[in-house]
Nucleic acid binder design. Structure first.
Length: 286
DNA sequence: AGGCAGGCTTTTA
DNA sequence: TAAAAGCCTGCC
């Protein structure tokens, strides 16, 4: 039907249609500051990189989505990545608009966000990089790292991409190479984290399922990992939905909207989900 | 002892 | 020029 601007190379991608009745807004997830390797394609689909995999997802409306994978891969990889077993509508339903109008508005406005189950190692490096930087700058550095030492792959549309670097690949980089990724003073933090994980001193898999506070303590033994970065790794990499990262925006929310204190007990064990609504909502506010 | 100011690299708006 | 999904050090 419509020509592709003359650049219509044949697509070999497999497509399957998935119906998702629960919250699932690709644009909001992409903008929520938890993933830095999603890219919107000119055709409106999203290219999503996860580990060494690449997926294209597109919203078709009415809760239907096109996924560029077979059912087996959807079931074994992406259902988990998108946390589709969790009911985010029900989590939002725990907010009483009368008791907490601010959080209710934030959640209503940012409806569609989910907490992705991302790779713990990738989250550790990404959030070490994130400190004192805005989201576009974080994206740039992560992408540079991946191009520098991530395995080169080809996606189902024939384009090249780089997987996130392995701990070994990253720990093998020289200081000068890391500097080229515009990491600044975070260079030594990234290198130390890569050495710790590659050398087996820090076993990220062993942190799964352990209490959030214990996991954060272990992460904070790394230089450059404080409370904020550790809680991001806990929430986005270990999927501890009660972890509550306090960045500058969330601190503003707590100061401005909850001067008498925020009711953490009321929202356990989903404090991290509500944190995402508040973060995204406040960041977009004029 | 624990709370706080200042510094740190670079990009973005 | 200030601020950015912060952390570390040194000082009191």
């Amino acid at each position: 039907m419509t020509e592709d601007g003359g650049a219509c190379h044949e697509r070999m991608e497999i497509r399957m249609i998935v119906h998702i009745a629960d919250d699932f807004d690709l644009t909001r997830i992409a903008g929520s500051g938890q993933c830095f390797r999603w890219k919107r394609c000119p055709d409106g689909s999203w290219r999503i990189l996860h580990g060494d995999r690449c997926l294209f997802v597109e919203s078709l409306g009415d809760g239907n989505y096109s996924f560029s994978c077979r059912e087996a891969e959807f079931d074994s990889v992406w259902r988990d990545y998108f946390d589709l077993a969790e009911n985010y509508g029900a989590i939002r339903g725990r907010i009483d608009p009368g008791k907490d109008p601010f959080l209710w508005t934030a959640a209503e406005q940012e409806k569609g966000i989910r907490i992705l189950r991302q790779n713990t190692w990738e989250m550790l490096i990404t959030f070490i990089i994130s400190q004192n930087r805005n989201i576009p700058a974080i994206r740039g550095s992560v992408e540079s790292l991946c191009e520098l030492c991530g395995e080169e792959k080809t996606d189902c549309r024939g384009a090249r991409y780089h997987a996130f670097p392995s701990p070994d690949a990253l720990s093998a980089l020289s200081g000068a190479q890391l500097k080229d990724c515009r990491l600044g003073y975070r260079c030594r933090f990234v290198h130390a984290a890569a050495e710790a994980v590659a050398g087996g001193k820090l076993d990220l898999d062993s942190l799964r399922g352990v209490p959030e506070e214990q996991a954060c303590r272990a992460l904070m033994e790394l230089p450059g990992v404080g409370v904020k970065v550790a809680s991001c790794v806990s929430l986005f990499g270990l999927h501890n939905l009660n972890s509550f990262p306090r960045d500058v925006w969330v601190k503003r929310v707590l100061e401005n909207e909850y001067p008498a204190g925020y009711p953490f007990e009321r929202y356990a064990p989903y404090n991290g989900v509500f944190q995402q609504y508040m973060f995204a909502y406040y960041r977009e506010k004029p």
